[in-house]
Design a protein around this nucleic acid. Structure first.
Lengths: 229, 229, 229, 229
DNA sequence: TATGAATGAGGATTCATTCAT
DNA sequence: TATGAATGAATCCTCATTCAT
């Protein structure tokens, strides 16, 4: 992926142009939706005077989108990875997973919305051929399943289908991204706290010393509920 | 809705053709994705020799999609409504909600996949103007929030943001539909059981006589876990 | 023209239907313009539930339009002919020609507007093949030229190109029809009076006893002029 | 008006292409009529291999037509304006108006025919919304009315409705353009001379020293009349 | 006769991509 | 490298006409 179409290593300028185009594509897709994100729109936003330049730097629209997704996912992992690893224990890691995900969303709103648009707009896995970016999705699920299995082995988590739980956790996070597309003022902190608590209850075992809040009759963090709940 | 463009009551033939076209659209969208579902593709699948016939029966592509969504949503509500109402108590209703949703998916796979495609492909709410079928989504969320609030008032459910919980429940269900698009052999019964348990734990209060399974250290329905979990 | 496509004489019903369709076409074209007057629009206005019926009664759209023009022109001639013949002398006949034309317009606004639309919208004479309804136009010009030549022979009219004068008179009348399409409240009586006077001055000879108003320094019918003149 | 859709100044090539396409549109419309002037026809006549190129250079068909009309009207005004201004006195100006109009027609036959086609084919003013290029028409009428009023104030012209007279003059000129579409060999010089004389008689007052030719019993320029008159 | 269904050609427009400069 | 010009396939939609009933 580091070689251009002439088989040479990409020059600095070339890399800069690609980055600029990808950035413009992110903005465009986030703002107008994948369906409206034509080369013309992207070029305009990038300040380019020709769509031809996009075709010059990217073999096809597919390659542009691939690059875009790649960058966002990589950035996300770079942001979240350390935070998750720093947490001790499966419960803490799960909480870190959820909260760092939403924290990343807060600082990379357009990126997240764009990637969500792309995932949704592109054809899914059908018959035999895989979805274009299904790999990333499956990789994320697998990573989560690992975490959940560790917790189950450690007795921190109850017994449940790690697959179903992982898919649900991802779906919950993606739903926040989806809502963020519609409402830029969405309160991500509240969402993070609520989701953390939700999946904590959903996963935790009833082990002594790890008793679920519901079991003790007390609630750790009482939150005021408003009408908008 | 029962009058055609000439202001006449729709004939039997017309209704049949419309249904046939809608069915072809469902198949096409479910199989190829919304983006690829042109009139030409739909007409071909319906065995029509001209795209003009689709335009003859539907005022626009929008009307076709609207009709499609309407049919699927109406059918879904007709299927699920009674099952949810028959359940007694909020916990049981929530379980019925989840299970009837997935049961409907099992028998209407293409319908669900098609509608999921449409929801995802169409422009989202941006700035001020709402998403085309966002109404349905918001209505579903609101309905779920009602159910959750009732459970909270009755003491069956713990304290949490009903909005976040409702969005997460819907996201979990939609994720199952999404997976169904990729894998027609998805085990919906297992998914239904797991999701029921998951959200039962996530919502329930610690009231006596309503103790969460996790608290007793035992699991009611022990499920064999496979590697694919 | 009195036989239908099966070579039979047209039944009363058939004639009635044709008349009804022609009437609807007149209304539609006058109101929406020729370009928007599709069979669907005409059928709807005629209260028919199928465009097929129009095709059943008329061999083609061309035949419908032909019939329409025929009816309007015939009605116009029936109205104007006697009025012109009743006038004595070329000057009086020319005045009668102009005034009866505009009088007919007043009572057959839609007809006139529709025919004007058709004349304008249809292809003109090009290369060799004649304009569809150029015949009517040329016939009208020829008739006017006859009248003008008679006046010249009788010494009532000055010497001028009867062709140019005839074309100009028709153009002036058609321009009134054109304006009538835009402004239904157009004052036809004033237009008739002004055009009569205009072409009286433009045609008349300087013979004694027939002196032009301009020559005597007096004006026969003094009209108050308003700012809108 | 000098910036293209990318907000750039138009290049030489772009201007040339636009001009070429406008020229092809003029030819096509003049020859086949507005109704038959599809992008396909225009592209073919311009030697383009794709209708897409027209859309590339013009935002819409409307813009193409607008540009076409604009060019022709501007050229016409540039041609006629100085000739009218050079004339001294209302009578001479009116004569210059008529003669320069027809002179322009002689050298820009297709342009005039095309614009006449467009004016006629496009929807007229109806209800409230104005005709697309009605502005030009009304502006021409207003300009003529100004000229006529000046002549009336100066005593050169008799008393008449300047509106009716102006509309009739324009109609007479347009009728020449109309005939030109059908007969390319139309004798424009004779038409110019006859129309000049016609409207001179129609407008002039009976003032001493400005006596109408008809009053003297003599004709200044005796013209041979042929059968075709 | 009359209806509604069906056809297929033709309408403008959008778009990613290619190419010469 | 970068630009603008050009391409041609694909988009939805309109319409007069035909046909079976």
């Amino acid at each position: 992926m580091s070689a251009n179409k002439r088989g040479r290593k990409r020059t600095f300028t070339e890399l800069a142009r690609r980055a600029q185009i990808v950035a413009a594509a992110i903005e465009t897709i986030a703002e107008m939706g994948y369906g409206q994100a034509s080369f013309a729109q992207i070029a305009q936003r990038a300040g380019l005077s020709s769509t031809g330049l996009i075709s010059y730097h990217f073999a096809s629209k597919d390659e542009l989108i691939e690059q875009l997704v790649d960058e966002v996912v990589t950035a996300g992992q770079a942001f979240m990875g350390p935070r998750i690893e720093a947490a001790v224990g499966a419960r803490a890691k799960l909480r870190a997973y959820l909260e760092s995900n939403l924290e990343f969303m807060a600082s990379h709103r357009a990126h997240i919305v764009a990637v969500a648009e792309i995932f949704n707009a592109l054809p899914r896995e059908r018959g035999g051929q895989p979805a274009p970016y299904g790999v990333w999705h499956e990789r994320g699920i697998a990573q989560l399943q690992d975490l959940l299995r560790q917790g189950q082995r450690a007795g921190e988590f109850a017994s449940f289908s790690t697959r179903v739980m992982a898919v649900t956790i991802r779906a919950a996070i993606d739903a926040v991204g989806y809502q963020l597309g519609a409402d830029p003022n969405l309160d991500l902190k509240t969402n993070a706290r609520e989701l953390s608590a939700l999946f904590d209850r959903a996963t935790r075992s009833g082990k002594p010393g790890e008793r679920a809040p519901g079991c003790s009759g007390e609630r750790p963090r009482r939150t005021r509920r408003t009408a908008a709940d």
